[in-house]
C-alpha cells in the first residue's frame, strides 16, 4: 500500500481557527480512520446536494419526472379508472422512468468533475476515490428519495378511494429505492468512465435498460438461461418487493449490484490517477 501523507487546512463552521491534520490517502482502500472517512463522505454528500438543489438541472429532472409519470399514470393508464386499488401499475411506470431519470442525474457526477479538472483538485484533498464515489452516489440516492416522496400523493389518493394495502406500497417504495440506488450506482460507474456527460448518460441508460428489460425477454430465451437472466432482471426482484414480500435475496441482489458498481467507479477513478 502506498501512503501519501498530506496536510490539509479544514475550515470549521463555527469560524474557529482551522487546524491542520495529516490524513493518509491510500490506494484501493478507505482511510484508516473510519470517522474521517465518514466525515469525508458526508462533506461530499452535502456539497453534491447543495449543488443539485442550487442547479436548475435537478429541478428540471424532478419536474420532468413528475410530469412524465403523471402522463403515464393518469393519462395512458388512468389509475383512477383502473377498478382496483393497487400501486402496481404506478410502480412499474416509476421504475420505467428511473431508467432515464437516474442516468440524467448521475451523468454529471464524475464526468463533469473530470471534464472541468476539479477531479484533480479533489485528488489533492484527503479523500479516497471510494469516499468521493460513495458521497456522490449517496447524493443521487437522496434525489431518488426526493423523487419518490413526490409520488406519495398517488397512494394517498388511491387510499381515499378504497382499501389500499400499505404493506405492498411500503415494499414497492423500498424496491424502487433499492432499484434506484442500484441504477444510481451503475450511473456513477459509467460517469467515471468518461468525461463526456452525454456519453455517460447513454452508457448509463443502456446499462440500466438491460437489467430492466431482461424480464421481458424471458419467453425468447433458451430455457437453460431463463433462471440466470431472471435473477439479474431488476423487474423480478422489484416485483417481489412490490407485491409485499421483503425477500432477503432481493436485498442481497440490489446490495451486490450497488457494491460492485461503486467499487468499479472507485477503481476507474484510481485507474485514471495511476495511469
Amino acid at each position: 500500500m502506498e501512503h501519501v501523507p498530506r496536510q490539509i487546512p479544514r475550515t470549521r463552521r463555527d469560524g474557529r481557527a482551522a487546524r491542520w491534520r495529516t490524513t493518509p490517502l491510500t490506494v484501493g482502500g478507505a482511510t484508516g480512520h473510519h470517522g474521517a472517512a465518514l466525515r469525508n463522505v458526508v462533506a461530499i454528500l452535502r456539497r453534491e446536494i447543495k449543488g443539485f438543489f442550487g442547479h436548475p438541472l435537478a429541478a428540471l429532472v424532478l419536474g420532468l419526472f413528475v410530469i412524465v409519470l403523471s402522463v403515464f399514470v393518469l393519462g395512458f393508464d388512468d389509475v383512477l379508472l383502473g377498478g382496483s386499488v393497487s400501486m402496481r401499475r404506478p410502480f412499474r411506470w416509476m421504475a420505467a422512468c428511473f431508467v432515464f431519470l437516474l442516468p440524467a442525474v448521475t451523468m454529471r457526477l464524475l464526468a463533469e468533475e473530470q471534464r472541468t479538472g476539479s477531479m484533480h483538485l479533489l485528488g489533492t484533498l484527503p479523500v479516497t476515490p471510494g469516499e468521493i464515489v460513495v458521497g456522490k452516489w449517496l447524493a443521487a440516492v437522496v434525489l431518488v428519495a426526493c423523487a419518490l416522496v413526490l409520488t406519495l400523493p398517488i397512494p394517498v389518493v388511491l387510499a381515499s378511494l378504497g382499501e389500499l394495502d400499505w404493506g405492498p406500497v411500503a415494499g414497492g417504495y423500498l424496491g424502487l429505492l433499492l432499484g434506484g440506488a442500484a441504477f444510481a450506482a451503475i450511473g456513477t460507474a459509467t460517469s467515471a468512465l468518461t468525461e463526456n456527460q452525454i456519453v455517460a448518460f447513454l452508457l448509463a441508460a443502456t446499462a440500466c435498460l438491460l437489467p430492466a428489460l431482461a424480464g421481458a425477454a424471458l419467453p425468447l430465451l433458451p430455457t437453460a438461461l431463463v433462471p440466470a437472466v431472471e435473477y439479474i432482471s431488476f423487474e423480478y426482484h422489484f416485483a417481489n418487493l412490490a407485491r409485499g414480500v421483503l425477500d432477503s435475496r432481493s436485498v442481497v441482489f440490489f446490495g451486490s449490484v450497488i457494491a460492485v458498481a461503486l467499487r468499479m467507479a472507485a477503481a476507474l477513478l484510481e485507474h485514471r490517477r495511476l495511469a
Partner: peptide, 17 residues
Amino acid sequence: LNHASAAWFGRVDLTAD
C-alpha cells in the same frame, strides 16, 4: 453471496392479510 442467499433466505410478508 447471491448464490448463498438463494439457498439461505428469509422473507417478511408485509401484506395486511
